[in-house]
Design a binder for these strands. Structure first.
Length: 593
RNA sequence: GGGGUGGUAGCUCAAUUUGGUUAGAGCACCGGCCUGUCACGCCGGAGGUUGCGAGUUCAAGCCUCGUCUAUCCCGCCA
């Protein structure tokens, strides 16, 4: 027994007890005589005291202690002298006078400042990942992992209480077209053949519905071989759910309860119930995004008719070409400098905006703008009223294709909110986005692609439209759950009729042979009595990160990859022995340097 | 694949108008002093291929080119 208590356990009522503690030396304060050591473990910190008058031998050993040494100590809990309490520690009213010490391990000087009291001070990511086991000793990051663990426990409870079964699905799967690039695993016993790691257990969970399992959930590892971002890792975890005999309302209602009962409990708050819903069309129009951040207004207005029918050639030609003109009133931003506006212009250019038109509303409500000569005073005033601007506001306008006008404006909206500090991290705004388009035209592929995935059912009233080949206006029974501008979950009602599924594959450009080869087993399964079903997947890492106000999910994953999808700690991916490659019948054809 | 930003001591950063003594500071580290500190304090010390490679120049951390790398973003991510 190395310890009787953790380093976060002792309180005033323990005074007088003889205790043993074990942990890491967080910090040593040597006053010449008495030596103080903050001993740290997962549970907290406790100050232990080495008094030369109490025990000279032990004191001499304490003299050798350095940061991150691993020790076990035994001593007597004492009330700290008057005025010597430390309010920052839960154990701060006591300390432990040490009679016995054992150095369990020494430690080299840490390349990371583990005991840095400034929580926001972090070394660069490369160094942190290289010494991740040291990085993970920091209390703030341990807190993140522990929170995720607690959340998972409640997730399991919730689904079990609601009749869901936790069923594992394969990690070695069949590679399928559509979607992200697959991670491939060569088969040794089947030369020239490959498994794919699952992008999600989508098909398996649907097969479980066909199998009659009725309600399935799984904490599922998913893999996507695409470029990384702060909120995207090549492997990540989903709370994956599927239910039989449900419509989309049933799924959303279940997750309304999930948010209230699980997230509300873990983060100790009361979410709105039900969570508000907004159509995709409304979100794109008003917020220029399918994941609107509703912590602030800054609503976008369509001013195509107003602005297009003026003497301003740019607006005029965009409208005639079938494009849109969108505007918004940036409240209290009349004093934006020319440099700020230039930066905003550059910002929206990244999203395809050809330009950014700005107008100031002066104290007397008069509109002032560089392009004023193209508008009448009435037209300017009409624009001002249309976007809801008044004195001391700045107005911004973007003209372009509907997609560019919407998304560039949406990004402008976010950037203004950042500048004005409107993204309050303590506010949580949930919203369901519904009625997503069924298909999306891909310029790079030159064809329509599924916006969600190819198993998504069209809205019943749009089925005929889809079957007749109108893909543009066909909406799906798909829904995303959005929190503070972050998509934390998404799902759909699935197609359960084999003929509809076949048709969708065909519309996506897959011929009969390709469907048979890639999805044959899946399509066959639907011929044997598939129940209507639907579900949803929650991004576990992203939910926790977003709830904690972090943008990067890396601080919630014990061993994440860097942006090159490699691990600076274990140097993976790495080269392998030639014999290993021979076993799996692989020869390398590497790009020239 | 493309763009932005960064790479200087173990760590976090600095180094004046394109350049001008021996590249600095804080923390960490090592030594000394200090008996109630808690980011202890005081004194001293050590620590540098300025990512790498070329180039321009009398002179490069600083300018140019290439390259590597990290990060953020666009594309991509059903």
């Amino acid at each position: 027994m190395k310890r009787t208590h953790s380093c976060g356990a002792l309180r005033l009522e323990d005074v007088g007890k003889t205790v043993s503690l074990a942990g890491w030396v967080d910090r040593r304060r040597d006053l010449g005589g008495v030596i103080f050591v903050d001993l740290r473990d997962k549970y907290g910190k406790t100050q232990v005291v080495f008094d030369p008058e109490r025990n000279q031998e032990v004191h001499q050993i304490a003299d050798q202690l350095r940061n991150e040494y691993v020790i076990t100590v035994t001593g007597v809990v004492q009330k700290r002298p008057e005025g010597m309490e430390n309010d920052k520690l839960s154990t701060g009213k006591i300390d432990v006078k040490i009679d016995k010490i054992e150095i369990l391990n020494t430690a080299e000087t840490s390349p990371l400042a583990i005991n840095d009291p400034k929580e926001e001070s972090r070394e660069n990511d490369d160094l942190r990942l290289r010494y991740r086991y040291l990085d993970l000793r920091r209390p703030w990051i341990q807190k993140n992992l522990i929170l995720k663990s607690r959340f998972l426990k409640e997730v399991h409870n919730f689904f079990h209480e609601n009749g869901f079964e936790d069923i594992e699905t394969p990690v070695l799967c069949k590679s399928t077209p559509e979607g992200a690039r697959d991670y491939l695993v060569p088969s040794r016993v089947n030369p020239g053949r490959f498994y794919a790691l699952p992008q999600s257990p989508q098909q398996y969970k649907q097969l479980l519905m066909i199998a009659g399992m009725d309600r399935y959930y799984q904490i599922a590892k998913c893999f996507r071989d695409e470029d990384l971002r702060a909120d995207r890792q090549p492997e990540f975890t989903q709370i994956d759910v599927e239910m039989s005999f449900v419509d989309q309302n049933d799924v959303m209602e279940l997750f309304d309860r999930f948010v209230t009962e699980v997230m509300g409990k873990v983060w100790d708050f009361t979410p709105p119930s039900p969570i508000r819903r907004m159509t995709y069309a409304e979100a794109m129009l008003k917020y220029g995004s399918d994941k609107p951040d509703l912590r602030f207004d800054l609503e976008i207005k369509d001013v195509t008719e107003l602005a297009g029918n003026t003497g301003f050639g740019v607006f005029n030609s965009v409208m005639k070409a079938g494009g849109k003109i969108r505007g918004l009133a940036a409240k209290g931003c009349v004093d934006f400098t020319r440099k700020q506006i230039d930066d905003l212009t550059a910002h929206v250019a990244r999203y395809g905006a050809k330009g950014l038109v700005w107008m100031r509303v002066k104290e007397n409500d008069e509109v002032e703008t560089q392009v004023g000569k193209f508008f009448t005073v009435d037209q300017l005033n009409a624009l001002r009223d249309a976007v809801g601007a008044s004195a001391s506001d700045m107005m911004f306008f973007i003209a372009g294709s509907e997609k560019v006008a919407a998304t560039a404006m949406g990004q402008l909206r976010l950037e203004i909110a950042r500048i004005k500090g409107l993204m309050n991290p303590s506010v949580r705004e949930f919203v369901w986005i519904t009625e997503f388009p069924m298909f999306e035209y891909s310029e790079t592929e030159g064809r329509y692609m599924s916006m969600h995935h190819p198993f998504t059912s069209p809205m019943p009233e749009h089925l005929e439209m889809m079957l007749s080949g109108n893909l543009k206006d066909c909406n799906a029974q798909a829904y995303d759950l959005v929190l503070n501008g972050v998509e934390i979950g998404g799902g759909s009602v699935r197609i359960h009729k084999p003929d509809v599924q076949e048709k969708v594959f065909r519309l996506l450009g897959l011929n009969e042979e390709q469907v048979k080869e890639k999805f044959g087993f899946f399509v066959d399964a639907f011929k044997f009595g598939a129940p209507p079903h639907g579900g949803l997947a929650f991004g576990l890492d992203r939910v926790v990160a977003t709830m904690e106000g972090f943008e990067s999910i890396r601080d919630f994953i014990a061993f994440p990859k860097n942006t090159s999808a490699s691990s600076p700690m274990d140097q993976s991916p790495s080269e392998v022995d030639l014999t290993q490659l021979q076993d799996i019948h692989i020869s390398l054809n590497l790009p020239k340097k």
